[in-house]
Nucleic acid binder design. Structure first.
Length: 550
RNA sequence: GCGCCCGUAGCUCAGUGGAUCAGAGCAGCAGACUUCGGAUCUGCCGGUCGGGGGUUCGAAUCCCUCCGGGCGCGCCA
């Protein structure tokens, strides 16, 4: 948006040079002294033309046709960069286009008509979400919001397994606590595999309230009741936590349905058909070495039960056959081995795995009292994601988890996050938004209305801080698109800081309601309003609220 | 041992598939409107981009190698 006119000017010059096929890249120079826009197109074509880039730059500039009331100077610098300097009129034109987009500024329809599926959280119902899950939750949901911001129709999916060994352990854990609470204090608890959290006692207490001592006679039926009760309790807990973070899934996919629907059978048959399956030591193996991986893996144990890999493969076959244009899996780093096997197998079955994008985030290290704070569901620790939200609020939690690139090992200092509440990056953004809202409240009291684009005297824009703010705002749509393409919400978080900063600087240097003329008051109010839109839309992508006052 | 990720300022991190003087936040130091929210703004301090090779006119960025951290490498999920 910022460089649309520049791109046209450069394209036309290239055309006159017989280089109509070249797509010039226009960039924001790293240093302000290098102007407002720069193109490296002369360097791009230097090799092809066999001429020094500076000479080419001169030829291009000589053939440029531009409006001197918009562009102050075109300079050739260094090895052949072409730098442009804008006049305020140029920024006024850009601002006009920002205003045209209104409330939707920053969002686009670039991928309109496309469908995306984002799978995240996918924690099994064996306990409350722990803080480490927070990164997956925040990352996955922000990615879903980002994709929506560029036009995708997004399905948010949660994959879970409510059968299998883990659930048996849960049931046994609950049953053991149930018996102990009933007075059978020597009833054995499986220290190795059992879930030790306090919440198991809570579930057991609910069972006592509901059934009294009627489950005291140990039976399959009693365990089944424990299992069902445990699943319901855990899912309720998980959903409550997600709700607090503004996260809602459209589809809860039960792994068990893969068995009842016959998908497991069909997948294994299809793999067998391609000669990728063999029997050894009583188990069934997949020959992933034939697909370029390190070693073969068991897909059906000698007991006849599939390993987790097989349903994962079947599940991805289903996801790929639904017709989504993009499938995003948000996983923790511990899934790295699995995802390779799954994609290799599914690819061998003829599915186009290039539609699957895996966002693999590294682990989170929580620091408390200056030391790593170990959090494990089975270690008996009580600290949960819910506790973290209690302590820091949903906005801080969401922001902190997405503020860094997924592949960094996030250090989350619980003490710092709490203390930081005054210089917190989240509050910096929210404060800018609240401040703008406050200006509008004052404007309303003075009877000053926000004017429509056509009624604004945009030629009154001349202050450098106004131009700098417009320059920053104009980048927002590109930032959103880049973040969506890279599935990287941190890019938006980073950008919002520079946007808020540009506004605060503008606010200090330019009086809005006290500007010299009514025209200028209106123009600056419109600038503040556009900034508010950017902040609101940007924060919404991150799932962070934009309060009107704080 | 093998695979993937990371190593940039005291700390946490950017650096858009190479190119015009290595950037930001926090911490530290020094300052700032008689008026729109000082949860703000301005400036300063601070880095042989983990080490060493290589490719190039040019490397934080690409290749090789070593060192240091993380996560995996089950007939657990």
């Amino acid at each position: 948006m910022l460089f649309d006119s520049i791109r046209t000017i450069v394209r036309n010059a290239l055309e006159r040079l017989g280089l109509a096929d070249v797509e010039p890249t226009i960039e924001l120079p790293r240093h302000e002294s290098h102007g407002d826009a720069a193109t490296t197109v002369a360097l791009q074509v230097a090799r092809r033309l066999g001429k020094p880039p500076r000479t080419i730059a001169e030829e291009i500039v000589a053939r440029m046709d531009y409006d001197p009331s918009r562009i102050a100077a075109v300079e050739i610098a260094g090895p052949g960069f072409i730098n442009f300097r804008f006049r305020p009129r140029y920024f006024a034109d850009v601002f006009e286009r920002i205003l045209d987009r209104g409330e939707r500024f920053g969002f686009s329809d670039r991928y309109a008509g496309k469908r995306a599926n984002v799978e995240y959280v996918s924690a099994n119902p064996t306990g409350p979400l722990h803080p480490g899950h927070g990164r997956n939750v925040a990352l996955g949901d922000s990615i879903a919001r980002l994709l929506e911001a560029v036009g995708y129709r997004v399905t948010r999916e949660y994959y879970f397994n409510n059968a299998g060994r883990q659930m048996q352990n849960l049931a046994r854990s609950i049953y053991a606590r149930y018996r102990q609470l009933l007075g059978d204090t020597d009833y054995p608890f499986d220290e190795e595999n059992g879930y030790k959290g306090e919440y198991i006692f809570d579930i057991a207490r609910e069972l006592i309230a509901e059934y009294g001592d009627r489950l005291r006679q140990e039976s399959d039926e009693a365990l089944a009741i424990c299992r069902t009760k445990g699943e319901q309790w855990c899912f309720a807990s998980i959903r409550r936590t997600l709700e607090r973070l503004g996260v809602h899934h459209d589809v809860f996919f039960n792994e068990h349905s893969l068995y009842t629907d016959g998908h497991i059978e069909r997948t294994i048959a299809a793999l067998r058909e391609r000669g990728l399956v063999y029997e050894k030591d009583g188990a069934t193996w997949i020959a992933t070495t034939k697909l370029g991986l390190e070693q073969d893996r068991v897909i059906v144990k000698s007991t006849g039960e599939p390993t987790y890999r097989l349903p994962d493969m079947a599940y991805h076959c289903i996801k790929l056959s639904r017709g989504d244009d993009l499938i995003v899996d948000v996983f923790g780093a511990d899934h790295i081995a699995t995802i390779q096997e799954v994609l290799a197998a599914v690819g061998a079955l003829g599915y186009d795995t290039s539609r699957v994008k895996v966002v693999l985030h590294q682990m989170v290290t929580f620091m408390k009292d200056g030391a790593p704070y170990k959090l494990s569901k089975r270690s008996g620790e009580q600290y949960t994601l819910d506790d973290l939200i209690d302590e820091l609020g949903p906005d801080v939690v969401r922001y902190f988890f997405v503020m860094r690139a997924a592949e960094t090992q996030l250090v989350f200092d619980l003490d710092l996050a709490r203390q930081q509440s005054e210089t917190n990056p989240v509050f910096y953004l929210q404060y800018a938004h609240a401040r703008i809202c406050s200006v509008f409240a004052n404007a309303r009291q003075l009877g000053i209305e926000l004017l429509s684009r056509d009624a604004l005297a945009l030629d009154r824009i001349e202050h450098p801080a106004e131009c700098a703010l417009i320059r920053t705002l104009a980048q927002f749509p590109d930032v959103v698109e880049r973040a969506a393409d890279q599935l990287a919400p941190y890019i938006v978080a980073d950008y919002l800081h520079t946007a808020a900063e540009a506004f605060h600087t503008f606010y200090h240097e330019c009086r809005i309601l006290g500007a010299q003329s009514d025209d200028l008051v209106r123009v600056r109010l419109a600038l503040a309003d556009a900034t508010r839109t950017v902040l609101r839309n940007g924060l919404s992508v991150l799932g962070v609220s934009a309060p009107e006052r704080m």
